[in-house]
Amino acid sequence: MTATTDGKRHGPLLVGLAVTLVAFNLRPALTSVGPLLTQIVADTGSTATTAAALTTLPVLCLGLGGAFGPPAIRRLGVDAGILAGLVAVLAGLLLRGLGGLPALFAGSALSGLGIGLSGVLLPALVKRDFSRHAGRATGLYTMALCIGAGTAAGLTVPLEHWLGQGWAAALAIWALPALAAVVAWIPFARLRPTPAAAPSAKAAVRLWQEPLAWQVAGFMGLQSSLAYIQFGWLPALLQGRGLDAVDAGYLTALSAFAQAPGALVVPTLAAGARDQRGWIVGSLFVTVVVFAALGFGPTKGMVVAAIVQGFALGGCFGLGLTVIVLRARDAASAGALSAMAQGFGYALASLGPFGFGLAHEVSGGWAWPTLLFAAVALGAAICGLGAGRNLHVGQAARGP
């Protein structure tokens, strides 16, 4: 149950619906650019390096926004902190609608900060309000994240054609669902934090000395890097194989939509297991194999490959959020661990799209970038073998 500023309490179903709407709006700012990336580069006379920076900046800002998680919990509370993040997302989306590279970069950065702040607070809310069903609740809002990602990836190019106002208007249209989320979340935003859910500054500092916390952060960051490489570069890779912008966007959207069931099913099953190591390694292996199939396999199998790859990648992302909740003892430690894992993790994740773009520019093809994708997945698996153990932060020294 969640209290509001007037002391009333909302049922878990109503809270869950509101969280789902919030989660839906935490990815369109990221996935709407990729399908238009080739057009943006052509219209602005940019280089591949500029395109790589554009796909990297919002992910880097996710990490910076995540660093504000613990202070936001202490000063505002989880609920009002989520609202503040949503308002930043909305403002950034509107800013992108002004057109031009400066507004596009500034709006992407502001939206990234807001996504980072709201994103790190959601695990604390799950631990507080849905602690008995952490895997299922995490899977549901992760599924909503994936649906939002897929909707933006698939509809942005058709919206650009329908509006006839250029790429800036197509990007700005995603401010409408963000506005709906802001309005819907206002009744849940209380202005004072719950003391038990506010991690102390000392606790947050101690967490950075925990090997298990670093393993959780490493897994969260590296598996997220795989997703942001796909969001930013899969449309361009598919266009490089001869698909037009619309078909490439649809395939990317199909893969993103397929992440939704993966994000629901895999964390729910993994949360009920003794530990999550097998689920982590298996999901990463499938993600890499099928990404390679999309880049180099037969074109007739692209639809199936996109679905399977999306399911596996959604499972990875759901596992990243689930281990944050499972490795924490309470809402306070979940908030602190979420801020570290997503703050540091997204800063680490931002290197993936940038490195992928540079590898493509240097090599002129997709073989080197795909090898980089596999190397990132290997690093995620190594971290995941530690993060998936049945331990809590502060307990790792005693062994599994």
Rank of each mutant, 00 (worst) to 15 (best):
A23W: 06
G242F: 01
V281E: 10
P58C: 04
I280Y: 01
R190F: 08
A258G: 12
L145Q: 05
M143N: 05
A178R: 01
C146G: 03
G135Q: 00
P400T: 13
L155I: 07
G335F: 07
L378G: 00
T44G: 14
A203Q: 11
V265N: 01
A175N: 07
L125K: 02
P199E: 00
L191D: 09
G139F: 11
A341N: 07
L284S: 01
V120S: 14
S283Y: 11
F105I: 12
A48D: 13
A197W: 04
M1F: 09
W174P: 02
G282T: 14
G278S: 08
E210W: 03
A248I: 06
G119M: 06
L14N: 02
L37E: 07
G65C: 08
S350E: 03
L358R: 15
P177T: 08
L269M: 14
Q215W: 03
L264R: 02
R190K: 12
F317H: 10
P211L: 04
D244W: 05
I73Q: 14
A397N: 05
V362C: 00
V87K: 01
E160G: 13
G154Q: 13
T47I: 08
A336S: 14
Q209F: 12
A84G: 10
G116S: 03
A149M: 15
E210N: 15
A256F: 14
A196K: 05
A3D: 10
G301D: 01
T56S: 15
V266A: 06
I229W: 03
A137P: 00
W185F: 09
T44H: 14
G7P: 07
G69M: 01
A306L: 06
A292I: 04
T56V: 10
L171Q: 12
H10Y: 15
G218F: 06
